[in-house]
Design a protein around this nucleic acid. Structure first.
Lengths: 333, 333
DNA sequence: CTGAAAGCGCTTACAG
DNA sequence: CTGAAAGCGCTTACAG
């Protein structure tokens, strides 16, 4: 039985645990890491675990990373635009699932004009995930810094949309309007510059889907809720025979619905609109807005599964391809 | 002159650079780290730098952290509420300033009910900064993980508000209304639950400031822009002789201003309102909203100075205490 | 089943 | 001014 350590600020190491448990430091490593192929008797294992617990042992992550060549860090590079759905719920779910597998998730918003070194230089993550492909200098920098994997992979094509489901929503919106009998559609968004990449991506996805359904590509209408551009737009759409509106999000849908109401139109008889995100305003609005609901938890778990498949070669569950989005039909379609 | 490396996936190390430059690995470390007390001739320094550049050398951060005992990572734990001002600008500025000093900033939003291990366990940051004090289990966990410094410091009292300037804004709002002759004030916010901690903090700050100015503490009014609660509130305020409204942010100020306009009140003659953040809506609204502008860049540099003072013992610039917030007077005060 | 030992790639006194 | 060498705290073949 070791005497209690004097209150020194020295951090407790695996050697301390080994001494406390009366085993070698290698054995400590084996039980703490659950190393496969090692058969440790239950009594030894228990002694080690208890010693570690008693001493408050935390493995030194730098030492572990240096020795193993893996940092057990996953870096998620977020886009430079406001994320629409409950991002935090999503990230919590991802963190939790990765944590159970011994990985940590670090998120990071990178601007094109950011002058600081990118975070992967100091973290050496095992995997860097972006929402859009990285450019060559970034990829080169990652490789030089020991990043083992990059997604989207610069070399091989990957199933897109694993992380943030950019195109699945618009596709559902189009499908839903199509199903309800609408053949002449348009895509609407606010004018704000910051969301423009995402607006373009979603518009593109909706347009592609419309063509897949045998419809014409969608026009892109930019409105501003602070002036009468929504009223203008609705009037023009009616004149042009457009009856279905794919809105970038619920706020846009609300602006359009309110213009339609002001114009004395019936929804969905005269014009139908579907939002995106199922935000609070969608239920509160009169008429209540049809929208796309995102199952953030399922999406998060799916993303974690994907990550673990990449870094730990775990099997990729089939459920990854299951829809995490659903159409919520209310009064505007 | 070394022959070009064969395309091996092995990462280039300081030893490679040393060989390429024809010096010892210690020398490489000295020039790359600008180690003080070492006098390296310019020719050697240049040779090393060029070799490092040519080889694309990136120091292994894990090895560096292990050897030096410092990770050169600063972890900023963000609050579980939407941050009001242009947070991203602020963080970019902080990152840049820290980067110049060789540190990396990692941010992290932590929920009370988050089950994953906190990020400091895997990053071992040199400094963890929170916007509110950490609880004892968190502090204990940080210490066990080799975190060297924590802010707010559990042991010694610190100047508050270095990181996010929670109270400075409300104080300016109150001072401004007071200056404009208002003596009977109220604090208004939306009902949303998620922002509640911040609402309470800001309300408290405004209230304290009012008392400092010899006024009564401020009541806290919760409104909902989706119903007629703003109209209700304005009516009650007028009846109660309240003439100055400290709004949580510009959105709240807009909701109030619009209720005041609907009620036929003159602004600021009958009622004055001041927002917070100088968001786009503040200029676009009619009447244009008085508000608080936050100099995010200055705030960010100030925070970086503070961090470097803590981790590198750099002198703390006096400018830290200079105001990074200014009153923007428009038409509502 | 357990231990002794090499090695990961740095930093940093310590010698020359 | 430069180099040889110990050491940071792990992981991981390799022996017993």
């Amino acid at each position: 039985m070791a005497v209690p350590e004097p209150t020194t600020s020295r951090r407790v190491t695996a050697l301390d645990v080994a001494r406390e448990a009366g085993v070698s430091r290698a054995t400590v490593g084996f039980v703490l890491n659950n190393t496969p192929g090692q058969t440790i008797p239950e009594s030894t294992r228990k002694r080690v675990l208890q010693a570690a617990e008693r001493l408050g042992y935390r493995p030194n992550s730098a030492a572990r990373a240096l020795a193993s060549g893996r940092s057990r860090i996953i870096l998620l590079v977020l886009p430079d635009w406001p994320v629409e759905f409950r991002m935090q719920d999503y990230l919590d779910e991802v963190s939790l699932a990765l944590d159970k597998a011994g990985y940590s998730l670090v998120t990071y918003t990178r601007h094109p004009d950011q002058a600081a070194r990118p975070l992967w230089e100091s973290l050496s993550p095992d995997l860097v995930v972006g929402t859009i492909p990285f450019n060559s200098p970034d990829v080169a920098s990652m490789l030089a810094c020991g990043v083992r994997q990059i997604y989207p992979d610069p070399d091989r094509p990957d199933p897109p949309d694993v992380s943030l489901a950019i195109s699945a929503g618009p596709e559902l919106q189009v499908d839903h309007l199509h199903e309800r009998g609408h053949r002449n559609l348009i895509f609407a968004a606010f004018v704000e510059a910051r969301t423009s990449s995402m607006v373009l991506a979603r518009h593109q996805a909706a347009s592609d889907r419309a063509r897949f359904q045998g419809l014409a590509a969608l026009g892109l209408e930019r409105i501003n809720y602070r002036d009468d551009s929504p009223d203008d737009a609705v009037r023009r759409w009616i004149d042009a025979g457009i009856t279905g509106v794919v809105a970038f999000n619920d706020d846009v849908a609300a602006a359009i619905a309110s213009a339609a109401v002001r114009a004395g139109l019936r929804m969905p008889a005269d014009i139908a609109v579907i939002g995106h995100d199922d935000s609070p305003i969608a239920t509160m609005f009169v008429p209540a807005l049809s929208t796309i609901r995102i199952d953030t938890a399922a999406l998060g778990r799916g993303f974690a599964d994907f990550v673990l498949h990449r870094v730990d070669r775990r099997p990729l569950p089939a459920s990854l391809t299951l829809p995490n989005l659903t159409v919520v039909r209310r009064e505007t379609t």
